[in-house]
């Protein structure tokens, strides 16, 4: 091929050196531009380590692999936040399927659950990531389009309104799991849909697929003040996330798989939130689904079949 750019010219030394000079300048300029465009990478302080890069898929990890991963995570958290965490990989229990029931008669819209959740699950404080949205809805309608989640009343409840907190519904048929191209999110046998933050590629398909707007994306590195970091962590739960991954409510896996109640339930001042094992006929949730006017699974018509039930007292 004889293009003018590649045709050798061995006749003139002067032309050679000039050409070489121009070539050199172009190459230097190009390299500088490349380096400059890559320079934001220098700001990544948690750049992938070999260990992290070679980490196996969660479901393929042996207990040995997992203990190494937990050690790595503990070190990372300690380095970044100055707090030594207690990270565990809690597995689902046999004969347990979690269900959440929320009493719309009782909820007063105080948003304590929102912030207890942020505090328990190490969500970013700025920009804010919150798993729970409390909708203020006018009486007489269940249309969420009429809801407002930015209300700033001096006092709640406001007469003429009811409040409807929405968070991950832990569907039986979760659309978010179906769309994940890398299987970074899946449903566990106790009903919790979890995310492996080390496997997520941040494509946000799940965020788009979720009809409840339950999934949140880490646009930046999460900002968590050291004194507010919760050191009781779980691998699939509240360990600090990194930039560019999804997160969502996981029924406080680090608490509930340990037999405790979720943080949003314990903080609720009116006892509107109820949680338990639906396979146990003596649990509160079994009692509620049996005895109460369980009104909706939110957006029932989507066929997602949530494990989150809204009910009324009277």
């Amino acid at each position: 091929m004889s293009s003018p750019f590649s045709s050798p010219d061995k006749t003139s030394d002067a032309a050679m050196s000039r050409r070489n000079f121009l070539r050199g300048t172009a190459a230097l300029g190009g390299l500088t531009a490349l380096a400059a465009s890559l320079s934001p990478l220098l700001e990544l302080d948690d750049l992938t380590s070999t260990e992290k890069f070679l980490q196996k898929y969660y479901k393929e990890m042996t207990p040995d692999d997992m203990s190494k991963v937990i050690k790595r995570i503990s070190n990372e958290v300690e380095r970044q936040y100055g707090v030594r965490p207690h990270v565990r990989d809690l597995k689902p229990m046999d004969g347990v399927e979690f269900v959440y029931c929320l009493n719309l008669t009782r909820c007063i819209g105080c948003r304590k659950c929102v912030h207890a959740c942020v505090n328990e699950n190490n969500q970013s404080r700025n920009p804010e990531i919150q798993y729970i949205r409390v909708l203020k809805m006018p009486h007489g309608s269940m249309d969420v389009e009429k809801g407002n989640h930015t209300y700033d009343d001096k006092h709640v409840p406001d007469p003429g309104y009811f409040y409807m907190p929405i968070q991950c519904q832990q569907c039986h048929n979760p659309p978010c799991v179906k769309v994940c191209p890398v299987n970074a999110t899946w449903q566990e046998k106790d009903g919790i849909t979890v995310i492996d933050y080390d496997w997520c590629i941040g494509c946000r398909y799940c965020e788009a697929a979720c009809p409840y707007w339950a999934r949140r994306f880490n646009w930046t590195k999460p900002q968590i003040p050291k004194e507010r970091l919760n050191p009781n962590m779980a691998y699939l739960g509240n360990r600090p996330r990194k930039q560019g991954v999804m997160e969502k409510c996981h029924f406080c896996i680090q608490r509930t798989r340990d037999g405790r109640y979720p943080a949003c339930l314990e903080v609720c001042p009116v006892g509107a939130r109820k949680f338990g094992n639906i396979l146990d006929p003596n649990s509160e949730v079994s009692y509620i689904l049996r005895e109460k006017r369980v009104f909706i699974q939110l957006k029932e018509e989507m066929g997602t079949n949530p494990r989150f039930f809204y009910y009324f007292d009277k």
Binding site: T256, G259, L265, E266, C268, K274, F275, G276, E284, Y287
Partner: peptide
């Protein structure tokens, strides 16, 4: 309802074995 744990605030353990 309260006796069944369905009325009022609760805390502690849903898993009574723990």
């Amino acid at each position: 309802d309260w006796e069944a744990g369905a009325h009022g605030r609760t805390s502690g353990y849903w898993d009574r074995s723990k």
